[in-house]
């Protein structure tokens, strides 16, 4: 979908789900090597987020008594 034809006000929930499904199919049909490259990038992003010193400490859940 190009920017010219993109009109959010005319989009339905079905359109959104269809677009999401099509995106997943497009990604699934990539060559395996390319998919693994994406996996590696996702790993590095996740690792960077985990090791970020400014990352707030995760809060422990409070269990009601």
């Amino acid at each position: 979908m190009d920017n010219e034809s993109f009109d959010l006000s005319k989009m339905t929930v079905d359109d959104l789900f269809r677009a999401k499904r099509e995106r997943r199919q497009r990604l699934a049909s990539l060559p395996f090597e390319q998919k693994i490259e994406i996996v590696k990038r996702l790993q590095s992003v996740s690792r960077a987020a985990r090791t970020n010193p400014e990352r707030p400490e995760p809060k422990s859940p409070v269990i009601p008594r």
Partner: peptide
Amino acid sequence: GIAAVYYLEPYETD
């Protein structure tokens, strides 16, 4: 996970 990525969209797997 890696076998799943072969068939599916790529997602993070350790």
